[in-house]
């Protein structure tokens, strides 16, 4: 299946918004961290994992999702959060550790929770699998609409919990889709050195479910594969597994010198940057005019600027509020 014109515009807008957001975060991240880099300093402290290059996975999948559908994402979550419709102001404020953030500064960039759109992410590899499978179980038991999608990296498939959750989703025939973002690197360890099979779609056979591999970081092909898997889940036909080849244009975290990358790899990846590629395709196929694309880009820029301004202008949390919200009110 192919995305409609509106969907293509939506996909491009969200890819651009995500990239502009990451660019803004990257710039601000180094405030207070130069000349001496100290992760604890600046308006955005802590680890920062940027999603540059992986935007096609987020938009190709989330184009099929509604707010009621459940998404769990990883430690590298911004592109997926944006594509799922997480409130960008509150998300930015959470990353700045502000009182107006999604969780008032208790979570940070690896722990973004937006209950309005059923989005959550977490900081440990393969961790979102169980909760997504459980949400799928909940929808099935309640007879309520909605599917659950767990985004994981290609490194996650070597975690025991990943296999446990895949098996559980399959044995209970749940409305669940696992999307593997294969960016070829688990921090500094290459996929080829860590994973016994070249592509992880073949692992679907272990659970008796469909497995698909999408090459080339292509948002249209991802849209197609995700559409099939999500329709299957919505129809009650059970889970699917999709592995998507994508590119990590940034380091594992900000400050990563990436000395482990082969010479020239990054240049090759930047040449395949999916955002200019999609832009060119939209123009070539006449799906969007130059004016329309420029308008999408300036709107995305303005949206990001507004979110960053909101975050900067928001107040710090009251320190003693750290002691609240441990248990449900």
């Amino acid at each position: 299946m192919a995305p409609t014109r509106d969907e293509q515009h939506w996909m491009y807008r969200n890819m651009v918004t995500s990239r502009r957001f990451e660019n803004a975060i990257a710039k601000i991240y180094f405030e207070g961290k130069t000349p001496a880099f100290n992760m604890a300093n600046g308006p955005i402290p802590g680890e920062m994992h940027l999603s540059d290059g992986q935007e096609p996975v987020a938009v190709g999948v989330c184009a099929h999702l509604n707010p009621e559908d459940v998404v769990t994402a990883t430690h590298r979550p911004h592109h997926q959060a944006i594509a799922k419709g997480v409130d960008l102001d509150k998300m930015a404020a959470e990353i700045f550790g502000k009182a107006s953030g999604l969780s008032g500064g208790r979570g940070g960039h690896m722990h973004l929770f937006d209950t309005d759109v059923n989005f959550a992410c977490s900081g440990i590899i393969a961790q979102g699998m169980g909760p997504a499978v459980g949400a799928a179980l909940s929808r099935k038991m309640q007879g309520k609409p909605g599917v659950a999608v767990a985004f994981v990296g290609e490194g996650a498939v070597n975690q025991g919990g990943w296999h446990e959750a895949m098996n559980l989703a399959a044995v209970w025939n749940l409305p669940f889709v696992c999307v593997i973002e294969d960016n070829a690197w688990g921090i500094s360890v290459a996929k080829s050195a860590a994973t016994a099979v070249a592509t992880n779609d073949v692992r679907a056979a272990a659970y008796g479910i469909p497995g698909t591999r999408v090459e080339g970081n292509d948002p249209f092909a991802i849209y197609d594969a995700a559409g099939t898997a999500i329709a299957r889940a919505r129809n009650g036909d059970g889970p699917s597994l999709i592995e998507v080849e994508t590119y990590r244009l940034a380091g594992h975290f900000m400050g990563d010198a990436e000395g482990y990358r082969p010479e020239g790899e990054k240049d090759g990846l930047f040449a395949k940057d999916p955002i200019p590629a999609m832009r060119a395709r939209l123009l070539k196929e006449g799906t969007a005019s130059e004016e329309e694309l420029a308008a999408i880009e300036s709107a995305a820029e303005a949206r990001v600027d507004a979110a960053i301004t909101f975050a900067r202008d928001s107040a710090d949390p009251a320190p003693e509020d750290a002691l609240t919200a441990v248990f449900a009110a």
């Binding site: 909760p131 499978v133 459980g134 949400a135 909940s138 959750a165």
Partner: peptide, 25 residues
């Protein structure tokens, strides 16, 4: 349906319980 034997997969079914609890169960 409501009294559900699980595979021997504590990580999966306890993680799933978290997801189901957050989803209203």
């Amino acid at each position: 349906e409501r009294i559900r034997d699980t595979p021997i997969s504590e990580t999966a079914f306890i993680g799933a319980a978290v997801g189901a609890a957050q989803d209203g169960m």
